[in-house]
Structure formats: C-alpha cells, structure tokens
Amino acid sequence: MHPLLRTVLQRLGLGLITLFVVSLIIFSAIEFLPGDFAKAILGQAATPETVEAFQKEIGLDKPPVERYLNWIGGILQGDFGSSFSSRVGFRRTVLDIIAPRLWNTLFLAGITALVAVPLALGLGLMAALYRNSFFDRAINAATLTTISFPEFFVAYILMLFLAVQLRWFPSLSNVSADMPFFERLERSALPVLTLTLVIVAHMMRMTRAAIIGLLASPYIEMARLKGVSPGQVILRHALPNAWAPIANVVAFNLAYLVVGAVVVEVVFVYPGIGQAMVDAVRSRDIPVVQACALIFAVTYILLNLLADIISIATNPRLLHPR
C-alpha cells in the first residue's frame, strides 16, 4: 500500500477509536450521578414511586452495556432520547430542544468562520512578512490584549458602544427560524463581531508564528538568493510547506469558535446550542447535556482529523517515499 494511504487510514482509525472512547466518557456521565439525583430533579415532593418510575424511565434498571448500545444506536438513527424535563404524558425529545438551536449555532459559527479565517490568515501573513515593523508591533499588542480579555468582556464592550450608544446594531440577537436572511444577519452582527475579534486574535498569532518558523528555513533564504520575487517566495516556496501548520491553526481555532460560542450566545441571548447546554447544565438535564457535548466533541474531533489528514497529504516525504 502507498505509505500516504496507510498513514491516512491509520489516522482515520485512530479518529474512530477516539470518537468511541469519547462517546463512552460522555455516556458514563450518567453513571456517576449521585443517589439522590432523582429527588433533586423531581423536587422534594417526589414520592418513592415517582422516583422509581423516573429511574426506570431513564433506564437505570438495565445493565450499562445495554444502555450504552441503546443510546449510541438511537443517536446513529437521529434519536437522542428524552429530556429530563419530560413528564408523564408529555415527552420532550432532546432532538426537539437542540435541533433548531443547532442550526442557529452553525449559522453563527459559519458566518464567523467566513469572516475570521481569511482575515486572520491575511493579518498573520502580513505580520510575519513585515515582522518587527510598526504594523507587526501594533497588531501584536492589540491581539495580546484581546486574548487576555474574557469573551464576555469583549461582548459587553461591543454591546455598550455599538448597540447602546451608537445604536448601529440590536443589542439582543433573538433570531427566529422564519426571519429573512438579512435581518438574521443584522441581529447576529454583534455575536459574530465578538467571536471574530476573539478568534482572529488567536488565529493570527498562531499563523504569524507558523509562517515565521517557515520563513526562517534555509530553503527560503536560498529562494531569495536565487532572485525569486517576494511574491513567488511566498507562493511557490513557503505555501506548499505551510499547509500543515495552517490547517492545524484553523482547525484549532474553529473548534475554539464552537466553544467560544457558548459564552457569546449567553451574552446576546442568541438561541443557540451553547445556551441550550448551559441551561441544561443548570437544570441538570443530563440527556440534553450529553447530546450537546457529543455534538461539540464530534465537531472538534472531526476538525482535528481533517487538519491532520491535510498535514499528511501535503507532506512530500509521505507523498513521494524513497
């Protein structure tokens, strides 16, 4: 087999194992619930009968292996189970709670990624090319400050100035499903802007470091000494070797984006999956927490997997073995 294919398959296999172990960890959350948990959920008025009924409802009477298989089997068919907020005669499925919100979060993350990735890569590249210039120092100081700020600080500052004082954007992002695209975009402007600021700062710094590391290679100096034009040095000599570090930077930060969304959604009351998860954690609605965690974790693992595969596929030593 070609070594490249073998390495990619190995990586995919490793990814699958990771997914399995992570699903086990998330599933086993329910195993660690304290004994008085049902009471906490059902309230002090719960009778022993209702507690028992509840425990049966969530399947605590069955062996863990069977429950895991049921759980993961259901998820593979798109059934994430019932929320703890279900009551007798009124079943709320986890999917009902998270499905519309998942779409909202993907919208938010997607728009942010569209803005932030090119911006960060561009700025990072510029800072690397003109390193130690005024531009580089200024942008470095700015990003160092931004990454030192908690996300909610950035979010509220933007809200205070852009929404409350300047009234350019709405301060709350209560989007709904039937909203036209541009109105949705306007409502999402502040969350997108906040996330962009945070992500760009991280991503730009990492891009800069990766490119500077690359530009210090002797083959880049050689290209310059061959009289290759500055643009060609970047495009022909640096870029083919830069895919791996850049892919890793982007994957890392997109994953960060998904997580950063949790705080930002809460600030702007944006109806996304992050806010759903926070609410579920507060009410200890475990099935919803598990579903959200699984979605976040799978996204994160897949993005990293993709970055790894890009790194492997652009490595000349693997592409062209001896």
Binding site: M222, R224, K226, H237, P240
Partner: peptide, 24 residues
C-alpha cells in the same frame, strides 16, 4: 539586486539538504 541574484551571482549553501525546498 534581485535581477542579479541567481542570474549573474549565484549561491551554493552549506547544507544542501536544508536548502532544497522539500516540496518540489
């Protein structure tokens, strides 16, 4: 200067392994 480099003044570096671009 760039026009001269490579065409009229060329350079041979110490470590060829590091000075060749691994991607080409």
């Amino acid at each position: 200067r760039r026009a001269l480099r490579g065409s009229r003044i060329a350079y041979v570096a110490q470590s060829a392994a590091a000075s060749f671009n691994p991607a080409h």
